[in-house]
């Protein structure tokens, strides 16, 4: 009788123990945290080792197999890309220069109703995927950019996050200056494509900031 009870208690535990599988995967290119975020699954237990750049997976054989396939898909070499930024200030001030009017598409100019387009600065930034690129632009503007490869390697598309911050200002009796954000957006850019990113006020269209962003993947 007691043997039968013992078997009844131990049998499910033994079955579960047989089902669970542990697998350690060493990553070659990506960080363990980024892959862990990707594999965020309630049933799969993941331990991260930054020291060995590895992930330890604990789950059923099917879950571990699926996770391994996902890791193999995303643990690819990080790509390098080059970005060309042309920073243009659009305004209707008669004294402003109009040296960047040819860079802005005519159809967009007809929509915007600005009369002057002055190029403030242009910059070329080159960096690795998932790394921050910082740009110091003319007129105390600061830019920060980061990209990721979004789609398959056959027709890659870059997901670019861009932030342009204005001149730091001291408001009131505040000790630290306040840096206003002029433009902050994420854009999907194809290899070799130029995207127009713009920012202005909602109603008072006195001036606007236009950034022509060209992305190019490097081999």
């Amino acid at each position: 009788m007691s043997k039968a009870i013992l078997i009844l208690i131990l049998a499910p535990a033994l079955l579960l123990a047989e089902e669970a599988q542990t697998k350690t995967v060493r990553l070659k290119h990506q960080s363990p945290e980024s892959i862990q975020r990707l594999l965020n699954n309630a049933r799969l237990r993941i331990s991260v080792s930054n020291e060995f750049n590895a992930l330890m997976l604990l789950g059923s054989p099917e879950e571990v197999k699926t996770a391994e396939a996902t890791i193999a898909q995303y643990d690819t070499p990080r790509r390098q890309a080059e970005f060309v930024l042309r920073v243009i200030e659009a305004s209707s001030l008669p004294q402003a220069t109009n040296d960047a009017a040819d860079l802005v598409p005519g159809e967009l100019k007809s929509l915007l109703r600005y009369s002057r387009y002055a190029q403030r600065d242009s910059a070329i930034a080159r960096g690795m995927e998932a790394e921050w690129l910082y740009l110091g632009l003319a007129g105390n503007l600061r830019g920060s950019l980061r990209f990721r490869i979004q789609s398959d390697p056959a027709s890659p598309q870059l997901s670019v996050f861009l932030r342009i911050q204005g001149k730091p200002q001291v408001l009131g009796d505040a000790k630290s200056p306040y840096t206003p954000t002029l433009l902050e957006t994420s854009a999907g850019v194809k290899d070799g494509e130029t995207v127009v990113l713009g920012a202005s006020k909602m109603q008072e269209n006195t001036a606007a900031l236009i950034v022509l962003l060209t992305a190019k993947l490097l081999p």
């Binding site: 200030e89 433009l183 920012a199 006020k201 001036a207």
Partner: peptide, 22 residues
């Protein structure tokens, strides 16, 4: 945030922000 596609294929992302001051 406004997303436009011009006739020549150029994509435009325009952000209207109340606190924008250049």
């Amino acid at each position: 945030e406004l997303h436009l596609a011009l006739s020549d294929g150029t994509r435009v992302q325009w952000i209207f922000d109340k606190n924008f001051s250049l």
